[in-house]
């Protein structure tokens, strides 16, 4: 790979971990280069100029050079204009970051996804209903990755979804209409949703409590399909916190 220099690229830190004696490896989401892994040399030294700036959820401008899988971070600038996340919004932010780390491969740029992520953080920072923000980001992420869920038409037949009917959602196919008594006892691992919910999700309308609840299960099923056998840490930690 030839050497590449990237200057002042809008980016967010998703996560970082210690690297060697005084450095950090930063996983960042950049606008034009997608997710990148960058070494921040000396960022763990007490007087490092980068220390204190490499925080998740704040808009930054990063410059780096790359010739191998891990680039070298050269400068970090504060872009500002985004209020800090706190409380539940902060927890939701960690969840978004985990989704990106697990689902989005490195160097697979999606500018629209970057913009949707920035907008989601702004909405979480403004303390909007986190459920809506999460559901619409989840759908956006799946769509950008090429797994757009079929919502307005029935699987295979292509018949428009009927808001009054119940559907079994097959992750690989889409909504399959339930026959008569089938809806009463769905087998485990199968997600049943109403047609109304599917159409609400298609319009990003989460005003109805039942839509929020069913959409949560639907997205969970669709994401689990992409992460076979994996447990989302943020979800597990949140559950433990609620149980305390």
């Amino acid at each position: 790979m030839s050497r590449r220099r990237v200057d002042q690229e809008p980016a967010y830190v998703l996560h970082s971990h210690p690297y060697k004696e005084t450095s950090l490896v930063v996983e960042a989401l950049s606008r034009r280069w997608g997710r990148v892994g960058l070494v921040a040399r000396g960022a763990r030294r007490p007087r490092s100029a980068m220390r204190g700036l490499l925080l998740a959820f704040y808009p930054l401008r990063l410059s780096w050079s790359a010739s191998a899988e891990l680039g070298t971070l050269t400068t970090v600038e504060w872009a500002g204009g985004q209020s800090a996340l706190s409380g539940v919004g902060l927890m939701c932010g960690f969840y978004l970051n985990e989704l990106l780390l697990r689902l989005l491969p490195r160097e697979d740029p999606h500018e629209a996804l970057f913009d949707a992520y920035a907008a989601s953080l702004a909405r979480l920072g403004a303390e909007q209903s986190p459920a809506e923000v999460l559901r619409s980001f989840e759908r956006r992420l799946l769509t950008e990755l090429g797994y757009a869920p079929l919502l307005e038409q029935e699987a295979t037949s292509g018949v428009p979804v009927d808001p009054a009917r119940q559907y079994r959602y097959e992750p690989e196919l889409g909504p399959v209409p339930l026959q008569g008594s089938q809806g009463a006892q769905p087998a485990t691992g199968i997600c049943v949703v109403s047609g109304r919910t599917l159409l609400d999700v298609a319009r990003d309308d989460y005003a109805r409590p039942q839509t929020r609840e069913e959409a949560r299960r639907l997205m969970r099923t669709l994401i689990a399909q992409r992460l076979p056998g994996q447990v989302l840490h943020t979800r597990a930690v949140l559950k433990e916190l609620q149980d305390l």
Partner: peptide
């Protein structure tokens, strides 16, 4: 707490 590293309560 470090939810991304699975460090919970």
């Amino acid at each position: 707490l470090s939810p991304l590293d699975g460090i919970g309560p």
